[in-house]
Structures are given as C-alpha cells and as structure tokens.
Simulated assay, not measured.
Amino acid sequence: MQRLEVVPRLFPLVENGDKRSTIRWREPPIVPGYMCYVCAGDPDRTVVVWVTRITSMPLRNAAAFVGRQDEWPDQVMLAGMREHYPGIELDDEVQVIEHLTPAETRARPGFPAADDR
C-alpha cells in the first residue's frame, strides 16, 4: 500500500476527517486508491484513506484549488510549505492529493484488513 508521512501536528486532522488533501513536492508519485498516512515520529500511528484524485499545479494555485485561498495567501502558503520543503518556490509544480475521510474509506467495499496495511 502506498504510504505518506505527515507531521504530528496535522495527523489528528487526518484522523478526524478535517484534512482531506495534502500538497507534496518532489516526492514519489501517489495514485488513486488506498493510501496509508504515517505519523512522523510515531510510525505505529497510521490511518488509511482512499485517494480520489491527484492534480499537478504550481504551488501558487494550490490554496485556491483546495478552497483555502483566504487562509493561505501566497506568502503564508510558501512559509508553511518551506517548513517541509525549504527550497520550494511559488512557481514550483506540486501534487495536490485529495482523499476520502478515514470513516468514508472504512465504509468502502474491500477495505483492507489491518494486516494488509
């Protein structure tokens, strides 16, 4: 199963379904299907989501794409992304990965058993 690490401060938002997308730069590609989020620093803490769509775009367009342009003006977005990717610029192409909530994912037919994750 594909896996992505997420920082501890954001992991609860993934768990409770408030975070339904993530923005990645220069990381291995993600494809639609099951994906396991792993909490950075606590690899036993995981949650599975169903990736619905991956869209590539310049970082400067990502906040509007996910409906957060008011919260994340360009300089706020850039500062936040540089916490994870120090060399990133607003014109760099990123992947916006959208997914179902963990609860929606568990309700899907064929949800994998814990041993399959």
Rank of each mutant, 00 (worst) to 15 (best):
R3W: 05
G110R: 15
P102T: 08
I97S: 07
T22W: 04
W25G: 06
M35H: 04
I30V: 14
C36Q: 14
S56G: 08
K19N: 07
K19L: 13
V49P: 02
Q75H: 09
G80R: 05
V47N: 07
Y85L: 07
M35K: 10
R60E: 03
A62E: 00
A64V: 01
T105A: 15
D116Y: 14
R53F: 01
P32T: 14
P86N: 08
R26S: 13
E27M: 10
L10Q: 09
P58V: 06
D74M: 13
P58G: 06
M57N: 06
E5K: 14
W50A: 12
W50N: 11
S56Y: 11
R3M: 10
R3F: 03
P28F: 04
V14S: 03
V76F: 08
L4F: 00
R82V: 07
T101I: 09
R20C: 09
A64C: 01
L10F: 11
T55W: 03
A107P: 06
F11S: 01
I23V: 09
E27N: 07
Q2K: 03
D115G: 14
G33K: 09
I30Q: 04
R3L: 09
V6P: 01
A79M: 05
A113L: 15
E89K: 12
Y34E: 08
T52H: 05
L59P: 01
Q69W: 02
S21G: 12
F11P: 00
Y34Q: 10
R60W: 02
G41A: 09
P32C: 10
M57G: 06
V6N: 04
Q69E: 15
P73V: 10
G80I: 03
E27K: 12
P28V: 05
V76P: 04
I97L: 12
A64P: 00
W25R: 12
R20H: 06
S56I: 03
V38P: 03
M35Y: 02
T101N: 12
Q75N: 11
V76H: 10
A63P: 02
A62V: 00
V48Q: 07
R106G: 09
T52L: 05
V66A: 02
A114Y: 03
R68S: 08
L4E: 03
T22L: 06
V31E: 12
R3Y: 05
I97E: 13
G17N: 10
D42V: 14
I54A: 00
A114R: 11
A63L: 04
F65K: 00
L78S: 07
A114P: 02
